[in-house]
Simulated scan of single mutants.
Amino acid sequence: MTSSSLTKPPMRGLLAKCPQFCIIGAFAVSLQAAALSKFAVAEPGKKVYADFYRNYDSIKGSEEMRKAGIFQSDFGM
């Protein structure tokens, strides 16, 4: 009868190694999420606003809103 011995699991330093691995992983994931939100949401939104206001005429816009009944002012136009 032969007995095969199993290798012992690494127990020394395990308590210190696991949280360190999780903290590094969480930091990496948070950096990726921040970069994704900046480049996929914020930058395109800034570009859309810049394109809109580049050719926006506020007088014309207020006249259109007044004619549509959305914008009501007491100053009379």
Rank of each mutant, 00 (worst) to 15 (best):
A40W: 09
Y49W: 06
G69F: 04
A35F: 07
Q32L: 12
L6R: 12
V29M: 10
T7S: 09
M77W: 09
R54S: 13
S30G: 03
V48P: 01
F21T: 14
K47R: 05
A33D: 06
I59D: 13
C18S: 11
G76E: 13
F27A: 09
F75I: 07
R66C: 06
S3A: 13
S58Y: 05
A68N: 07
A40H: 07
V48H: 04
I70D: 08
L31A: 01
T2Y: 09
L36E: 14
F27D: 04
M1I: 08
V48S: 00
A50Y: 00
M65F: 09
G13L: 05
P9M: 12
Y49P: 00
L15N: 13
A50N: 08
A50H: 03
S4Q: 08
K38S: 11
N55G: 10
A34T: 14
K46N: 13
A42T: 03
A50Q: 06
G61N: 04
S73D: 15
A26F: 11
A26I: 07
F71L: 15
Q72P: 00
I23F: 04
A35W: 15
D51H: 02
G76Y: 07
S3V: 15
T2F: 10
L14H: 06
I59P: 01
E43L: 05
A42R: 05
F27T: 07
L15K: 11
P9Y: 03
G25E: 10
I24S: 12
D74S: 07
S37P: 00
A35D: 12
T2P: 07
D57G: 05
A34K: 02
C18F: 13
S58N: 08
A28G: 05
S5D: 14
F52Q: 05
F21E: 14
F21Q: 13
Y49D: 06
S73Y: 08
A28V: 14
P44V: 01
P44N: 01
I23H: 04
Q20D: 11
I23A: 15
S37C: 10
K67Q: 10
I70Y: 03
A35P: 03
G69K: 02
G61C: 01
T7L: 15
A34C: 02
K8P: 06
R12L: 12
M65D: 15
S30Y: 08
M1N: 09
R66W: 06
M65Y: 13
G61W: 05
G45H: 02
A40L: 14
A34V: 10
L6V: 15
A16N: 02
